[in-house]
Design a protein around this nucleic acid. Structure first.
Lengths: 233, 233
DNA sequence: ACTAAGACTTTGACGCATCAAAACATATAA
DNA sequence: TTATATGTTTTGATGCGTCAAAGTCTTAGT
């Protein structure tokens, strides 16, 4: 595809590489720095384990990951830097789609996913300026700054709170529109304040009460794990 | 690359296919519906003729072009529709980059080229709305509406004017930033009014005078062919 | 300690988009 | 009409990203 003028086009990773790196990063996050196995990675990328293995070798050759055969991968410093760049892109694009183009919070993810592999650095810097350097995206996730620094938010999954806790919603995972729509219906959006009224490990449910509207809502513990909150002291 | 959930993802053409179709369309335009040869196409796509041949067979199998071996290709109705869709995307994106993100007229093309293959239809409709349905892009090219209708502008290449003609600049081809920067320096931008002061076929030059500033500018006839103007009666 | 279950790797294949180089066709000029 | 130049097609190869299936290693369970 027409990459004309051979004046040293400084190679950007393919979008596949970018995607793997992002996924490895989030797996690593989710598991607190644990090494990421091939099955896990393959599942997250929706490919077969063999594909994951060969791709990981490739990433390893590019010095983006450390690969220990039969164990798994960890990002190198370079890989981590790329991951953070991608996350910055993704979150800025999501914010832009919501704030400027009027996308709904629940439909922003898919388009951002496609755009993040196509936009130039110039584009990203322009929207960052346009939005006046936003701190978080529509889901409440922090946006790394252009040097790659991420503001670490202290927050806990909703299912690890105790009955009687009063909490502010910090973030809600951004993958599944269905889930997001449901959460939105019950006002579970970043910034809203709730009281944890019941945790029932036997039934596998937890209930919260929206302070402002007094509305009650019960959800599964697994769903609760996808919602991060900050306790109010 | 993770095209999960096999629920009939209605296949969008690859970006390569989109690119070929766009190029065939513009070659056809430029030559008033003449059949497009493989050399011509290969040059425009910056690939070898063999690549163009095999790609064209593929396009033909997808019913996007009519291919006559050893003669060339022409777009089918389907191909034309896709081409117009791509042109709409490209021009809306260019307009958006200029109007909203503050890109300069001269730097808009490259990013638009990358984005047009990544954006969703939703994205395009949102920016169209946001921009309030612009008629032309920053280069003065008409933007097809969502049904695919293009407003035909009557205009002639600057090099086909006569001495003494007074003209308004309608459009300036958008590929080459170098060229655009030079034109901009001399106020040759859409909407500006000029007087054609001299046409010299022997020297291969033409001179124009910017009405407002009285500035004179001489350029080659080939360059003149890239500038479309509307004569003022 | 042995074995079965899972995780992991290898191998061979495929589709897309490309290239180089060889073979072929056509048009024009001599 | 023949020769040459130019454009076109074919062929065989490559890199990327993928799969299926076969083979290998590791780990737990008894």
């Amino acid at each position: 595809m027409a990459t004309k003028s051979r004046i040293k086009t400084e190679a950007r990773p393919t979008s596949t590489v970018e995607q793997y790196i992002k996924v490895i990063f989030s797996q690593q996050e989710r598991a607190e720095g644990e090494i990421v196995g091939m099955k896990q990675l393959a599942d997250a990328m929706a490919v077969t384990p063999g594909t994951a293995t060969s791709m990981v070798k490739h990433l390893s050759a590019r010095a983006l990951v450390d690969y220990t055969p039969r164990k798994g991968v960890l990002l190198t410093a370079t890989g981590r830097k790329l991951a953070v760049t991608m996350i910055r892109r993704h979150r800025l694009i999501e914010t832009f789609l919501e704030q400027v183009l009027g996308y709904d919070w629940t439909e922003v993810h898919e388009d951002a996913e496609a755009l993040e592999h196509a936009v130039s650095e110039r584009f990203i810097e322009r929207i960052d300026t346009y939005l006046e350097y936003p701190q978080t995206d529509p889901h409440g996730d922090p946006i790394p700054d252009s040097s790659g620094a991420i503001e670490r938010r202290l927050s806990v999954p909703l299912d690890r709170c105790s009955e009687g806790d009063q909490v502010t919603v910090v973030r809600i995972g951004d993958e599944d529109p269905e889930f997001l729509i449901l959460m939105k219906e019950h006002m579970l959006t970043p910034g809203e304040v709730f009281l944890v009224t019941e945790i029932n490990p036997t039934a596998g449910t937890l209930s919260v009460c929206h302070i402002e509207s007094k509305a009650l809502f019960t959800l599964g513990l697994a769903a609760g794990a996808r919602i991060l909150v900050a306790p109010i002291h």
